[in-house]
């Protein structure tokens, strides 16, 4: 859900080195699970609020991007509320009991989910697809010695992202052509509609293969042969703000660790 919703703007978060941004986001999402009590969770939320403020993303836009996951969050809340029974019973209806333990577990779980969603959304909003692919290659590079094809993964990602608009245009063209031949994509029961997709899907797949083959030929004819010896047009250079973000995350992490060990 974070992909392809890039919101062009000029903010500290936009300017961050994508490698650092991705790393910080991933580590943050792991660190959230260290927070077990109110203080820790509040610290994590403060960190997130700081990131939102530094992103320059309008709050309305951010809220809209969370709309598709609301149902999931509500469902999680209810499940936790109903199925976790510990502490005092606050409210009982037959065999259904709502306990203080269930309530706090539900609150914690939904807050965690919320922070997870907001941080991924932020990453997607502030990082262009190209930067995202670049940023993924860096952190993956150390794993190359274990056989992780870091360069290939990032190249595949950027190509896949680049092809989305092309394939959408291609789909529109095919739908138009088949519509002109009398195809009907708008009426009928789900089964007939599913059947109506075939005359679009087959040509679309063929065109995707054609595009892929053309691109492969074009890349090879320009001497692309994988990562070895390739230099970058845009060399990524960590700036002060990147280290500041890392420092803030380090402080948050140590605070959470301390909070956990101190009873």
């Amino acid at each position: 859900m974070a992909l392809g919703q890039y919101h062009k703007a000029d903010s500290p978060l936009h300017r961050m080195d994508p490698r650092f941004k991705i790393l910080v986001a991933v580590v943050y999402m792991l660190v959230i699970f260290l927070a077990r009590e109110l203080v820790g969770l509040s610290l994590a939320l403060v960190f997130l609020a700081g990131a939102v403020a530094a992103s320059g993303i309008p709050l309305g836009l951010l809220a809209r991007s969370l709309r598709p996951v609301i149902a999931f969050v509500v469902f999680t809340f209810i499940v936790n509320l109903v199925f976790i029974t510990s502490g005092d019973t606050l409210f009982a209806l037959g065999r259904l009991a709502i306990t203080s333990g269930g309530l706090s577990a539900a609150a914690f779980m939904t807050t965690r989910l919320f922070t997870l969603f907001v941080s991924t959304a932020l990453l997607g909003f502030t990082t262009s697809p190209v930067d995202l692919a670049d940023g993924i290659e860096g952190p993956l590079t150390p794993f190359e010695r274990f056989g992780v094809p870091a360069h290939e993964i990032s190249m595949m990602m950027s190509i896949a992202l680049r092809f989305i608009p092309i394939l959408v245009a291609e789909k529109d063209r095919i739908v138009r052509a088949q519509t002109a031949r009398g195809a009907d994509f708008e009426s009928g029961n789900p089964l007939t509609r599913m059947h109506a997709i075939i005359p679009v899907l087959t040509p679309l797949f063929l065109s995707a293969f054609r595009h892929a083959e053309d691109l492969a030929t074009a890349m090879e004819s320009r001497c692309y042969h994988g990562k070895e010896g390739r230099t970058r047009v845009k060399t990524l250079q960590p700036a002060l703000r990147d280290w500041a973000a890392v420092a803030a995350l380090a402080i948050l992490t140590s605070a959470l660790v301390v909070l956990r060990t101190v009873p």
Partner: peptide, 15 residues
């Protein structure tokens, strides 16, 4: 009443 042949119409073949 109107038949329309788009550019590269063979790209719409599917069967």
């Amino acid at each position: 009443q109107v038949g329309i042949v788009f550019q590269y119409p063979e790209h719409q073949l599917f069967a």
